[in-house]
């Protein structure tokens, strides 16, 4: 298991370095549009390599949360929010790399709004809880 993980990180770093060199070469030969493409594809490949491991971590965490009888709604909401954060970061960084800061911040705005929507039930429930505690 551990050896396999070490090989994985070597793969990931290797893909990253190779694509970085490729991008530098493309930029020098005045082909910036391909550079963006290469960076997006590299991001996707690394993402898909890691996402398997991520599933293992999440399964462990959720079984832990179930064992101690923690309210499951919190946990699933946290996981959703983390997922949104990852996806938004991915998109925003690609746009930022391409020099489109405006679009990157719009993507982040979308992520923020959706996170707020997810968090809203819990915020309302919290307020209700506080009102109940007060005599």
């Amino acid at each position: 298991m551990t050896g396999w993980d070490v090989m994985d990180i070597v793969q990931i770093v290797g893909i990253g370095i190779i694509s970085t060199i490729l991008i530098i070469l493309l930029r020098q030969s005045n082909k910036a549009e391909f550079a963006l493409l290469v960076s997006a594809i590299t991001g996707m490949i690394i993402f898909s390599m890691v996402i398997d491991k991520m599933r293992y971590v999440i399964e462990t965490l959720s079984s832990l949360a179930r064992n101690v009888n923690m309210e499951f709604t919190y946990f699933s909401t946290i996981l959703k929010i983390i997922g949104i954060a990852y996806i938004v970061e991915f998109g925003a960084q690609i746009s930022r790399d391409a020099g489109e800061n405006a679009i990157a911040s719009k993507i982040e705005l979308g992520g923020k709004v959706i996170m707020m929507v997810l968090a809203m039930p819990i915020i309302l429930a919290l307020l209700d809880l506080i009102m109940k505690v007060l005599p």
Binding site: T77, I78, I81, I82, I84, A85, Y86, V88, E89, A92, Q93, E108, G111, K112, M115, M116, A119, I122
Partner: peptide, 13 residues
């Protein structure tokens, strides 16, 4: 969580 602009929102949550 990824360290970006969204970190503070997750922290609030």
């Amino acid at each position: 969580i990824p360290n970006g602009n969204l970190k503070k929102y997750i922290n609030m949550f």
